[in-house]
Write a protein that binds this DNA or RNA. Structure first.
Lengths: 240, 240
DNA sequence: ATAAAGGGTTGTGTATACAGAAAGCTTGCC
DNA sequence: GGCAAGCTTTCTGTATACACAACCCTTTAT
């Protein structure tokens, strides 16, 4: 007997699977859809901290039943993007510049170690190429791209390359969980082209140190970059 | 009108709440009960890696319905103690001595940083007391306590004191998530009194460095301790 | 004999019904 | 008028029904 994918008619039944993480919304499981929607809503500040995440309201808004909504809320709570309220309900977790220093302390511990491990791998090709591209990044940061997509994409590629070179599953997992919060924090402050150009130069330094196989310098460059990033962040705090 | 706590009669209804984390099993929510039961079963190796966690079977064994079982499985997956199977189901996640070095690499990054932060707090009282107790720990490690409960309790107190002194919520959270896996790994190998006495001395060194406010030494002592711990672990691998 | 097709069995994904439990509102008493 | 007790509303926690999907076993054709 053959099975056919049918759309949910609202009277029970499920969506086609398409391996967790598929792109098309109609092809995603309902719980996956609820999770990704809520997650991006929180990260992009469409749901600001303190927002009450009521199951019935969400299930109506997202067009799924409460069961997948509950699963999504559980995953968000585990990630730290939401927090179970004392008595009743779940709220979007708070994040403020008052605690960003703690976040950066953890980030520093993880990224410095990752940079050291990557440097010790002695695999310069990827990082030399990234060093070259980051040296040219000043040209990417123009008024034509206000969201700085190109720059952030390049920075993300460096992160990925370091994670891969470090070759540590647990470390990569910890960093992945941390970066969600960092994206969220970034929206708290305004950047400007000059600062991003500085950041690109610091990234280029990190890539070069890793390419040279110098773990001490790679760690130090990461420390310097993160300290500068934190101060840029605090200096550029957006108006409340 | 007054409400009374009633036990579940199996036809719907819920358990009394008693704030997540209550002790008495009958007072726990069903999802909490399923979670804590499964978690300790996995950590204590009663459910070895690869065990299939089937929802229907678990709901029958734990005496709750599938909904709280699903919530428990979601939390376990988020912690890394279980993994969603490709097509269908969830299995207890694998852990082997082949990847313990990666686990210790992450642990080292986090604990070294935590020790540095604690040392910089300059609050010697607690750590001087722990240093004293750890110096006497040799007497705790006797054949009268084969499970070494007293020693592990003391080591746990040092961890807690460092977390508290470091004063970083994100770092403490990351360490908490990591220690679950470390407990699980510990069961993979056999310890012996001489090795534990060495470990106690290393812990005493860490406590002293923190009490002295010397961040460099605190980090170095942590590095040394973790390197020794990893080698003790690999040397004492239990028979398969 | 082997491989493919078909049907059964079992298990997950989702929706929904129902039973507490908490917040808000109303009402009556002082 | 204020406060407390009861009622109402609404929300979460849990159980369960059902649809789809995967595995497995049988059957059949080559």
């Amino acid at each position: 007997m053959k099975w056919f994918y049918v759309y949910n008619d609202g009277t029970g039944g499920s969506q086609p699977p398409e391996a967790a993480g598929g792109r098309r919304e109609e092809l995603m499981r309902a719980s996956e859809k609820a999770y990704t929607t809520l997650r991006s809503d929180i990260v992009d500040w469409r749901l600001p901290p303190g927002t009450v995440l009521a199951e019935v309201e969400l299930s109506a808004r997202l067009g799924v039943s409460r069961t997948p909504v509950r699963e999504a809320l559980a995953r968000l709570s585990a990630e730290g993007l939401a927090e179970p309220q004392s008595g009743r309900g779940t709220v979007v977790s708070g994040i403020s510049l008052d605690h960003v220093d703690e976040l950066f302390e953890l980030r520093s511990a993880l990224e410095c170690r990752a940079a050291e491990l990557a440097a010790n791998k002695r695999d310069p090709e990827v990082f030399l190429e990234l060093h070259r591209q980051l040296g040219d990044a000043g040209r990417l940061i123009t008024d034509a791209d206000p969201a700085r997509h190109d720059y952030y994409r390049l920075a993300g590629e460096l992160d990925t390359a370091i994670d891969t070179a470090a070759g540590n599953h647990y470390l990569a997992q910890a960093l992945k969980g941390l970066r969600v919060h960092l994206v969220r924090v970034r929206r708290l402050s305004k950047d400007n082209p000059a600062r991003l150009r500085d950041a690109a130069r610091e990234h280029a330094d990190i890539a070069l140190a890793i390419a040279n196989g110098n773990a001490v310098v790679a760690s130090a460059a990461t420390t310097v970059h993160l300290d500068n990033s934190l101060r840029r962040l605090l200096a550029g705090r957006a108006a409340p």
